[in-house]
Design a protein around this nucleic acid. Structure first.
Lengths: 123, 123
DNA sequence: CTAAATGCTCACATCGATGTCATGGGCAAG
DNA sequence: CTTGCCCATGACATCGATGTGAGCATTTAG
């Protein structure tokens, strides 16, 4: 399939797909005229990329983790593992931050509700 | 206290503190010569702002939620409640996204480990 | 009093994923 | 062949929190 179809299937814009390739996240074969050709595996790959990007990972980290480039080397795999552990830590601490923020928000909501309850008649 | 001390106590840069004020997140009194004056309450306020910013909220949302500006009105409180619920939903879905990414990452880590285990001698 | 430290405002720079526009080529149906 | 749609590349724009530096004023320590 060409880029338009991959875009339709994944929800990623053509622009984004080209960007992923430029960043080394995605590899495509080219038709004789230079158009990008994809197969079903690429749909999965893009889904994974989207999952990671949506979690705030940088394209550079993803490029180092996802085994998209040619053949995996032992050295590359070791490096990937380092990055993966690093990212996992980052994800976990981000989850903690978000959870803390949500708790703080809940407290604020409560305060706000109380204010509204008391001010219903006044004001 | 002046801005340097507040910065030291909260870890927010002076630049950030001025920015928070500019965005309406923080209110300061001024000395006759124009320098910003803060008290202990401001330390708490900045901590809350940091919590929310670290969770990826925009300063505009925070400005609408945090009751920092003058006296709270009933209308303002109602609006704040709307924003708060909106933000809470966003936080929750972001937590879900991060969790999903972490699970995908864990699978990737497992694949990587297997590869390394099998390739230990080869390569 | 003087020098160092701190503060003020204003303005410009940064990062990263993506939108958008321009210009030009490729391909299928009439 | 031509019309219409898809694709390619490249360049510039965007958003938001923060860094940074200039130029000038104020506060504080010696």
């Amino acid at each position: 399939m060409r880029i338009g179809e991959l875009s339709a299937r994944t929800g990623a814009s053509r622009r984004s797909l080209r960007y992923y390739e430029q960043q080394g996240l995605l590899v495509s074969t080219r038709s004789p005229s230079g158009q990008r050709c994809y197969n079903d595996d690429h749909v999965q790959r893009v889904a994974l990329i989207q999952t990671f990007l949506a979690a705030g990972m940088s394209s550079m980290s993803i490029a180092q983790m996802v085994p998209c480039m040619s053949e995996p080397t032992r050295a590359k795999a070791l490096h990937a593992l380092t990055v993966m552990n690093h990212e996992r830590t980052r994800l976990t601490s981000m989850i903690d931050r978000l959870t803390a923020a949500r708790e703080a928000l809940d407290r604020l909501i409560e305060v706000n509700r109380s204010f509204l309850a008391n001010a219903t008649d006044a004001d």
